[in-house]
Structures are given as C-alpha cells and as structure tokens.
Amino acid sequence: MIEAFNTIILILDSTVRLSVPLLLACLAGLYSERAGVFDIGLEGKMLAGAFAGAAAASVYGSAWIGLVAAILVSIALSLVHGFASITHRGNQIVSGVAINFIAAGSTIILGQAWFRQGGRTPPLGSDGSRFETINLPFADSINGIPVLGPIYSELLSGHSILVYVAFAAVPLTWWVLFRTRFGLRLRAVGENPAAVDTAGISVVWLRYRAVICCGILCGLAGAYLSVAQNAGFVKDMTAGKGFIALAALIFAKWKPINAMYACLLFGFLDAIAIRFSGIKIPGLFEIPAQFMQALPYILTVILLAGFIGKAIPPKAGGQPYVKER
C-alpha cells in the first residue's frame, strides 16, 4: 500500500517535471496562434533556446545569464517567423518548418564549433550555472506526515524555479488574454483582423507582440530543458516536445487552463512510459512502450476527428492579413 502510494507520488513528480517544457511551449503557441499566427516552429525555438541557454550558462557560469540568452535567441527566431509571415505575408507553416530546420542544424554546427564535444555543451555544475531545486518551507519537517507529507515535500516542493514559473504562467496567460485590453485585441486579431484594423489598431504590431510573447515562453521552455531539468545541451534534446506541445494546444482548444491539463496529461503518459517500459496486463497482453509514446499524437488525432468535442482554431489563423487597397 505504502509502496504503491510512493510509486504514484514518484510518477506524479516526474509528470510535473516532464510537463513543464510542454506547458511553456504550449502557452507560447497559445499567444501566437490566438493572434492568428500558426507556429509549427515551437520545436525549433525551444531547441535553439536550450542550446543558447546551456552555452551561455556554461561560458558565464550563471544560470540566469543562460536564461536570458535562451529567451533572446528564441525571440530572434520568433522575429524571423514574424518577418516572413507577418511582414512578407509568407506561408506561416513553411516559415515554421524552416525555423525548425535552421535551429536543428545550427545548434549542432555551432555546438561542435564552440565546444567540440560532439554537439554537447560542457556539463553545468552546482556552481550556479544550473537552476537548483527549491525546497519549499518546512518540506523536510512535514515529510513524516502520512499522505499529505510526501505530497507536499516530494510533489510540490523540490523543483527548480522554472517549474513554478511555468505553472504561474497559466493563470497569468489567462489573465492577460481574457482580462486585459492587450489580450482582447490579441484574440480579436486572431479572429477578425479587419475589425481590429478598422478600430485603428495596428494588426502588424499586435501580431509581432504576440510572436514575441511566444518567443519568450519558448526560450523559457528551452532553458528549462538544458539548464534546469538536464545539466547541459544534448543535440536534438527537444525530441519532438514542440510538436507534442502543439498537439496539447489543439487538445486544449486554445485555452490556457485546458492547456495545463493537456500538458499534464501528456506529461503523465510520458512518465508512465518511462517508469514502466511497456505495461503488462496479466494474462491478457502487453501494451508496448511505443504505444505510450505515440498516445499523445493518437489522442490528438482522435480529438481532431471530432470524437472528443470539437477543436476550432482561431478563425484568422494561418492567413496573412492584407489591407484592402
């Protein structure tokens, strides 16, 4: 009984850790797509952010400098996406695909050229170049209390600051999008840019601000991967997380609170797949680990098929805005 409980706590703990990069990237996509700019390039921005974060953190010996570098690089890629898809009205999907490739290639090339460790960055140590875990107050002293003790000290406490930032970003995003003027306009520009334009608000500038928000959050996600969750950058370390985040965004129907649940669900699936390599149902059959890995994508496809409610994207998503002339 205690054994099972501890296992559950462990799985939930790794669920939290695994869902954080998904959550940050998912919220990043939320800002961009709510403003009508589809972003397939979450993966690339996260990867570039992870590399820049680990590289800067190892060179300057500070996790915070790493974080800033991750965010700046990610914003830079966001601006490339904006330049192509907002200013030049290029195809947003094509631009996102391009960014993924540019990030995938350049992180390896630059990593090899700068550090010569086969695309890795030097390992980040405990000298402040990596985000340390934070113990919430009294975490140790109440660990002995049954049930609640482990939940508090194992599950809620003992994560890096970026984990708390990620979960704080959920209500913040909700507030920004649904309670501020900027958020109202951002959503409007994703549904009906012409109306926003008629009201005298710049569609272009609004969309640029949305993709910058996207860049910041992708940078956070990348920094979390390489400077907090792991101690350094490994090539292709995002391993499709940007696309799972995209799936989560659709699964959440472009809503911030739902996004958190979707990311926790996908993180949970991942945690289970890691914990048990294949789930054995005694006497019947065995669910292979590959099925668990594919489950987020399968679930999203089922959702898109219309079996779990209907996912309706922002109406003007994917379309460049052309002023009548």
Partner: peptide, 20 residues
C-alpha cells in the same frame, strides 16, 4: 548537419519569403 541549415534556409527564402 550543415545541410539541415541549408535546407532550412532554402525553405525560408524559397518558401516563406518567396515574395520578399
């Protein structure tokens, strides 16, 4: 991996920025 960058740049300039 240089090719991956070139591929990305070709997609960017010949695709997304084709009207630049």
């Amino acid at each position: 991996d240089m090719i991956v960058i070139i591929q990305g740049l070709v997609i960017l300039f010949a695709g997304a920025l084709e009207h630049m």
